[in-house]
Amino acid sequence: MKSIVILVSGRGSNMEAIVRADIPGARIAAVISNRPDAAGLSFAAARGIHTVALDHKAFADRAAFDAALAEAIDAFEPDLVVLAGFMRVLTDDFVRRYDGRLLNIHPSLLPSFPGLHTHRRALEAGVRLHGATVHFVTPTLDCGPIVLQAAVSVRPGDDEAALAARVLEQEHRIYPQAVRWFVDGRLRLDAAGRVMVDGGEFSAPAAVVPAIDEVMS
């Protein structure tokens, strides 16, 4: 049984997707938030998952918060730490502490559009494909080794909300899949820091692309 700690800052819809996936061999040990009023904490508590609220505003600086966060995480002895809408830039020391077992999902096809406001920037750039990326976290923001990607078409008339909604649907598909690979022992980083997925129908990094009729619609 693999123990998983999930970090959220709000609703945590990707956390919900992972919990609802009921991945064999996985135990969601805790959901932790930097915001005590995060809706994701209520969702987790209602399902009997341990929750921790650790208000980042109560700490003198980022390093102090990250130290307390690491202590809270380590109390659950996780095999994997999952960022699911956790809206904090983590210190290098924190990231290195969980090297090879810290996953994030980003709402773009990395390396395009790292950082914030990805859907707006995609529309402004005029791209025809947008999407989401699951990746291992490294000290450089949104630049870690890519595990899995899903693409959606950018349609005429799309605004940020419409595009974001379609991307979020794909996030809910691929994040549980990546976690499942890790739990199954299939997902790993090789000696060169490259993502490997052993066995099965995928090799990594793998792109899950929508059907051609969606792309061409």
Rank of each mutant, 00 (worst) to 15 (best):
Y175V: 06
W181V: 03
R180C: 05
D190P: 04
E201I: 04
Q177A: 15
R194Q: 11
L187R: 13
D190I: 02
F202M: 14
Q170Y: 08
R186Q: 02
M196H: 12
Q177D: 15
R186F: 04
R173E: 10
R180D: 14
D190T: 04
F182P: 04
A165N: 02
I174D: 03
V179Q: 07
L189T: 06
R194K: 09
M196S: 15
A191C: 01
E201M: 06
L187P: 11
P176C: 03
G193K: 08
L168G: 06
H172P: 03
V183S: 00
L189M: 05
P176T: 00
V179Y: 12
V197I: 14
R186P: 05
A192R: 12
L168D: 08
F202R: 14
F182W: 09
P176A: 07
V183Y: 00
I174G: 01
G199R: 13
A191M: 11
E169Q: 11
D198E: 15
I174P: 02
G185Y: 08
F182T: 10
Q170D: 03
R186M: 03
Y175C: 00
G199P: 02
I174V: 02
L189C: 08
F182D: 08
V183D: 00
V195L: 02
A191K: 10
V195S: 01
A178L: 12
R173M: 08
G193D: 12
E171L: 10
R173H: 12
E169A: 14
E171V: 10
G193N: 10
Y175W: 07
